Amino acid sequence: MSGRRRAMALAVEHGVDDLYQGAVPALVPALVAVRGWDLTRAGGIVLAATVLSSVAQPVFGVLADRRRVPGLRVIGMLTAAVGVGAVGLVDSYAATWAAVLLSGLGVAAYHPEAARAVHLTGTGDRGMGWFTVGGLAGFAAGPALVGVVVGGLGLTATPLLALPAVGAAVVALVPRRRPGPAVAADAAPSREVSGTDDWRRFGWLTGVVVTRSVLFYGLSTFLAVHLAIRFGFGPALAATTLGVFTGSGAVATIASSALTRRFGRTAVLRGSYVAALPLLAATLLAPSPVTALVATAALGAALGVPVPVHTTLGQAYLPHHLGFAAAITLGLAVSAGGLASPALGALADQAGTTVALAVLLVCPVLAGLLALALVDPPTAPDDARTGSSRA
């Protein structure tokens, strides 16, 4: 299999894995409606999906840097699917929490090894861009799939959500021809890595990633609930609304390539977060469902554009620790935000979802300020010709 085809296959696989990240917040409205949970407990479910994942992501990243463990991709993906599939089969809050915790651990196991595999295809930033878009598309597909399955068949149908992972695992385990010379050369352990690690700027980038994660996961968890309360959306329509938010973000990543070629990576980061601030305000203050959906789509796009930049910029800052960089910018980028969900849920219970989501207005401001500390790494000759970030 050529490096390009291999990278595309990994992008599709990444989409399947991240489908289960997107499915968890999409299940929240159904859990609230069916089980009568308050928003504090609902936020705790999202915390379950992220708390262990946040701790495990760097560990799996270091493991991917030190040794090749390709089986982690399949194991992680199936574990994520099993956890989400079990949500509708258990009744107690503790059992639901444990099932979602297991799913988050599976997601954490998948990302670093998969990102390393993309790097070894020899497709560079272009391959990582495909990989990132695949993950975002999968995250966006999660709410849509939940809307179809749970909205149509009820909460007890969640085991059906595991079927995409089963199919992807079968495909991943089918023997393939040995990689061609270009891929094999790229995968050679003796391959030299140019550049030096810039841990200081990677630290600032991590701050941007975590801040964006709090904003994105807070919206993913409570925006659908907010619109359901304000405009009377049912669970299926609420899940569809979340799909609009995440789907527009996935589509927007396609524009990231052209934007970074024209303006540079760090300028795109700053511009995206500046744009997100008024769009978030417009989403919360929208006077009608149509206006809210339009603002939601635009906000999702603004938050989707910088995601591929996070990954390629992180690996540019840490060329000797690609797995660790991917664990932070791909994995922690989603999981860290869930840590704030219980606090947002408690605030929503006390003051309403509008107030709780309004607190998130500080996030794009903070992310933009942190991005001021970042600079574009020196551009290699090949990147200057084809674009420093083709995500």
Results as ranks from 00 to 15, higher is better:
F131S: 02
F131N: 04
G135Y: 02
A137T: 05
A137C: 14
A137G: 01
G138L: 04
P143G: 01
L145N: 00
G147R: 01
G147S: 06
T158M: 12
P159Y: 04
L161V: 07
L163F: 08
L163Y: 06
P164A: 15
A165D: 03
V166W: 10
A168K: 03
A169W: 05
V171C: 14
A172Q: 14
A172I: 14
P175T: 13
P175F: 15
R177K: 10
R177I: 11
R178H: 15
P179W: 14
P179D: 10
G180M: 08
P181Y: 13
P181L: 08
A182H: 05
V183Q: 11
V183T: 02
V183A: 01
A184V: 11
A184D: 13
D186N: 13
A187D: 09
T196K: 14
D197E: 07
D198R: 02
R200E: 14
F202R: 07
F202T: 06
F202V: 00
G203Q: 09
L205R: 06
V209R: 00
V209W: 00
V210E: 04
R212L: 15
S213Y: 04
L219H: 10
S220D: 12
S220G: 11
V225H: 02
A228G: 11
R230T: 05
R230I: 09
F231I: 12
F231D: 06
F233S: 02
G234S: 04
L237H: 00
A239P: 03
T240R: 09
